[in-house]
Design a protein around this nucleic acid. Structure first.
Lengths: 204, 204
DNA sequence: TGAATTTTATACTAATCGATCCAGAAGTTC
DNA sequence: GAACTTCTGGATCGATTAGTATAAAATTCA
């Protein structure tokens, strides 16, 4: 926090939020500086660079903001206090609900905003891929815990089950973009989770 | 086909193929004219526009080419001669195999190449969304046929089942991009299809 | 009141974007 | 060969890209 100097004429937090919505909707490369500055209250280029350093630095900041807010719908994957099945189910349902809300862009920023970039921005794609890997690892942890505590048989194909739930999770982004209502996705999640019960019954 | 005049110095079909790979990998907006022309053998701008009219016209042509080649992995959704379950299963497995092949970009062009665009190219997004809707309709037809012929009970929630399979199908694109091997996705498909058998057993 | 600090507006950079135009070469048909 | 058609290289278009230089304006602290 600066103690002296001319005070900033715009709210930095609100500006990051506005940028997040733009990146979320149009992606990193397709969001221009002009759009970002306009959404921040038509601030000048000088003000933009003084506050955010660069377009890429701002994007990274919006990803962090996303993870700390909307992205928390998936935190159950990393909560060892939750029962494994409940952790996965909750993450899926909350993701589906969040991604279909109309108060912000549809789908998931981590999946959509950098899925296709120019070669010079490949590191952006890789950064987002690493974020997706964290979610995948969380799902894997849940399934491994279920095997460890006997909830699932130890004959279960863990990578297969991880892929089953993670592929569905990733598909929600495009479904949400295509306007599929939450209730349909939520009902599909119920059906998907029935696989867990079927596998668990075989354990008896 | 022109009967007279100087013949084109590059192969138009090969040029469309090269363009398809670029759009597939980087998306519509992030693929520049310079990249396209370089991939076509460093042809001039004049040659490009004489042959393809515009970047957007070329993109539409590559989408058609994609549908007629790689995209045919999903044609089973629209084949009423196939048993409903086999049609869906085959479409999923062939999609997973094709999207993980290393001889071309990973994932599906229809899902990835226009998922986030600038506002001025929203019609590109909508065009691809319509293509995805056709696949979705194909899956729906399969499920409705299964209900009609008694393979699935008429109490089944059709939109829910369509969403279940379609969400997984759409998720394959990102999974493939993230390097998940075909065998894992294929095994997940086997598990996913077990839902069909469980629903069909209840019918007895 | 004045020095120090920070943000502001304005103007500007070099590069790239998709797209166009023209002169002339190159290949075709007759 | 003449007439005709088409393609090609090169220059160029206006607009936009991300990013910067400069100096005035607004604040805090001495």
């Amino acid at each position: 926090m600066p103690r002296t100097g001319r005070p900033r004429a715009f709210n930095r937090d609100e500006a990051v939020l506005a940028a997040m919505f733009l990146f979320w909707e149009h992606g990193f490369e397709s969001t221009s500086l002009a759009q970002l500055r306009a959404a921040m209250g038509h601030i000048s280029a000088a003000s933009f660079y003084a506050a955010f350093e660069s377009k890429e630095a701002l994007f990274r900041e919006t990803v962090e903001r996303y993870k700390a807010t909307y992205g928390r719908v998936m935190e159950s994957f990393h909560d060892p206090r939750l029962a494994p099945k409940a952790a996965i189910e909750q993450g899926l349902r909350r993701s589906a609900r969040m991604q279909t809300e109309v108060s912000h862009p549809l789908g998931c920023l981590v999946v959509l905003s950098g899925i296709s970039c120019s070669p010079e921005n490949q590191h952006i794609q890789e950064m987002l891929a690493k974020e997706r890997e964290k979610n995948r690892d969380g799902i894997k942890d849940c399934i491994e815990r279920a095997v460890a505590n006997g909830e699932l048989p130890d004959t279960v194909d863990v990578p297969m089950l991880v892929t089953l739930f993670d592929t569905f999770l990733l598909g929600i982004s495009t479904q949400a973009r295509d306007g599929i209502p939450f209730k349909q996705i939520d009902a599909a999640i119920t059906q998907l989770m029935s696989i867990w019960d079927a596998l668990s019954r075989k354990n008896g």
